[in-house]
């Protein structure tokens, strides 16, 4: 592969990952997408899930992201994640805690409808991660 994809993973606390890679699988709000080099400019929001980075050597690295924003342009792919950590650091307990907090929001009738809907969506996304993606 001559030219790779420039990929940056940034969380509010630090820059987690910055390398030239082969491809990245991203959990976009409207479905998973795989980004390769020279992807058309796209901006999308993220749902909680796991991103899969395939390095040029072929090894795969996985990160958990708790939502955020994806920016794809000519200079590469940038993920601004609310929260991000290596998938191996991710524990089921931590995830359960996140689900519990989100569920509280979803059931909190004090807050507005939109926030509640997004919280409900987050619960189901997180449960998907816990059920299907994490054991892999």
């Amino acid at each position: 592969m001559a030219d790779g994809l420039k990929f940056d993973l940034v969380s509010p606390e630090r820059l987690l990952f910055s390398e030239i890679v082969e491809s990245v699988v991203v959990p976009g709000t409207e479905g998973y997408l795989t980004v390769l080099a020279n992807h058309a400019p796209l901006m999308t929001t993220l749902r909680p899930g796991v991103i899969e980075i395939k390095a040029q050597s072929g090894t795969v690295t996985r990160f958990f992201v708790g939502g955020g924003l994806v920016d794809i342009n000519a200079s590469g792919l940038t993920i601004l994640a609310d929260e991000a950590m290596g998938a191996e650091q991710m524990t089921s307990d931590y995830l359960s805690e996140r689900i519990r907090v989100s569920r509280e929001d979803a059931d909190n009738t004090g807050i507005d409808y939109i926030t509640r809907t997004t919280a409900r969506q987050r619960v189901s996304d997180l449960e998907d991660v816990q059920r299907w993606i994490l054991p892999a």
């Binding site: 409207e30 901006m43 924003l69």
Partner: peptide, 19 residues
């Protein structure tokens, strides 16, 4: 001009509301 070429998913307004 690059900004104009962006495709947004979902719409720009939704992303802005999230951001």
């Amino acid at each position: 001009a690059e900004a104009a070429l962006y495709e947004y998913e979902p719409s720009e307004e939704d992303i802005l509301a999230d951001l």
